[in-house]
């Protein structure tokens, strides 16, 4: 190996330092929120430590005990499970038809389902009015059904189908198998890797459902978990504002501590919700990681 010059050594030190700092910038905020959620020692000296001073699970107990909060968790879990299962199944089936270049209208379906939806959309209000006229407003189904079809996922699955030797399905057809049988017995079992990958990505998407819930859901008991979190964040914002105003008016005696206490309690609860909403994603993350390089790379829409 060639000798490294001084400049390169300096660069290497700089580079490693840079990424170490970067990693800390990513980790510290999350660890701080984790600490806030586990700490009930609320008022005291400023502390940059990331360890809770008085460990407690009280904020997590608040989530479990508060029906208004854990219901939203269950709502998110419900749309994630049902939405992912339906979406993956329907897209995998649609992709099977898209993969058959020999079928008439194949190009048409590719434009209709994959390409045009990426270019044109009715926009917020027209889509809202359609969902409304179907009677889906304020129903969890409104968060699932409009989000089921994904042209992008269909394109990815279709590309995978192409890598399966056509002789397998051909021989089945010669033996008299129907298309459904070919799909369920041959294609689907051979496509487990791509199905798993798409399921994970779709699942993360449903778990993070926020925008459509803000638009279509009115009753708090049907909120998704992220919407509930947003509600708590707003309270937190309001407290921060009050706090800053109080600070400016120098009225910190007496009422100031109450406000600080309330604000910190709020932060502990938000922190706990943040941790709980990140948890499922962190759990599936190692599996996601296995797939996402491939997922991005096989993104060719050509065909």
């Amino acid at each position: 190996m060639l000798k490294r010059s001084r400049g390169e050594k300096i660069f290497n030190v700089f580079n490693v330092t840079f990424f170490t700092i970067f990693a800390m910038m990513l980790l510290v905020p999350v660890l701080y929120v984790l600490k806030q959620s586990l700490d009930i020692e609320r008022i005291g000296e400023l502390s940059l430590s990331l360890f809770p001073r008085k460990f407690s699970l009280v904020f997590y107990q608040m989530i479990i005990n508060d029906r208004a909060i854990y219901r939203t968790f269950l709502n998110s879990a419900y749309i994630t499970v049902v939405g992912t299962a339906l979406s993956v199944f329907l897209n995998a089936m649609g992709a099977y038809a898209l993969a058959r270049r020999d079928l008439p209208g194949n190009r048409f379906f590719i434009y209709y389902l994959v390409i045009l939806p990426m270019l044109f959309s009715g926009g917020l209000i027209p889509t809202y009015l359609v969902v409304k006229s179907l009677g889906l407003i304020d129903k969890l189904a409104a968060l699932i059904i409009p989000a089921l079809v994904s042209g992008w996922n269909m394109a990815l699955i279709r590309n995978y189908y192409w890598s399966i030797p056509p002789s397998l399905s051909e021989s089945a057809r010669i033996d008299g198998a129907e298309e459904f049988t070919v799909f369920f017995r041959i294609i689907l079992p051979l496509s487990k890797p791509v199905i798993a990958a798409i399921a994970l990505f779709t699942g993360v998407g449903f778990w993070n459902t926020f925008f459509s819930a803000v638009i279509y859901i009115n009753s708090p008991q049907k909120y998704t978990f992220p919407v509930k979190l947003r509600e708590l964040i707003l309270v937190q914002y309001d407290m921060q504002r009050q706090f800053t105003e109080a600070l400016q008016l120098r009225q910190m005696q007496g009422s100031g501590d109450d406000l600080l206490l309330a604000s910190l309690t709020q932060e502990g609860l938000s922190g706990a919700i943040i941790v709980v909403s990140m948890l499922p994603i962190i759990i599936v993350y190692p599996y996601l990681q296995k797939y996402f390089t491939k997922g991005i790379m096989v993104g060719s829409l050509k065909g």
């Binding site: 905020p29 999350v30 701080y32 929120v33 778990w207 914002y237 932060e267 943040i274 990140m278 994603i281």
Partner: peptide, 13 residues
């Protein structure tokens, strides 16, 4: 993979 709501929550904190 973390939603913006959660990220916002972290940063606001």
């Amino acid at each position: 993979f973390i939603s913006w709501v959660v990220i916002a929550g972290i940063f606001i904190s």
